[in-house]
């Protein structure tokens, strides 16, 4: 599946929820279920500080695809992190850098990505792009 197709799949999943409570309950479930990052990567080097909730992000280049793992100490943040990873992990750096991530707006979670939100997600997206950029350069060498 392309990134756009995965985004579309997430949008369809979320369209089933009629009210915000079901949507957040699902996010919380995603957050709790996420088999995330290896403990050794939950250090200051991988920490994206968002003032209130902390996010750890790690990336590996497997073949020519970037594989992301992540975690957060807040479960709603973690749920959104898991969506981002699901959509972006396992793709070529070029594709990741082109992704617009419009799905967060469409499923009504855009506010979580606003820079004023103290959850580290905005910085996480920037960090994802930085990893992709670095791997892109590496692949082009």
């Amino acid at each position: 599946m392309t990134i756009e197709e995965k985004e579309q799949a997430v949008i369809e999943e979320f369209s089933m929820f009629e009210d915000w409570m079901d949507k957040y309950a699902y996010l919380i479930e995603l957050g709790k279920d996420l088999p995330v990052i290896e403990e050794k990567y939950k250090d200051n080097q991988h920490l994206i500080s968002g003032c209130q909730s902390r996010v750890w992000l790690h990336a590996d280049l497997v073949g020519n695809q970037v594989v992301f793992t992540a975690d957060s100490d807040a479960v709603i943040t973690k749920g959104i992190v898991s969506l981002l990873i699901r959509v972006l992990s396992g793709h070529h750096p070029d594709e990741i850098l082109k992704a617009r991530l419009g799905f967060l707006e469409q499923i009504g979670l855009k506010e979580h990505l606003s820079p004023t939100r103290a959850n580290g997600l905005t910085s996480m997206v920037k960090q994802i792009q930085l990893y992709a950029k670095a791997f892109q350069i590496k692949l082009n060498q």
């Binding site: 957040y24 919380i28 209130q52 909730s53 100490d73 807040a74 479960v75 709603i76 943040t77 103290a118 959850n119």
Partner: peptide, 9 residues
């Protein structure tokens, strides 16, 4: 419960 999660809900 993380304060941020509680505040968000």
């Amino acid at each position: 419960v993380h304060p941020y999660d509680l505040g968000t809900l």
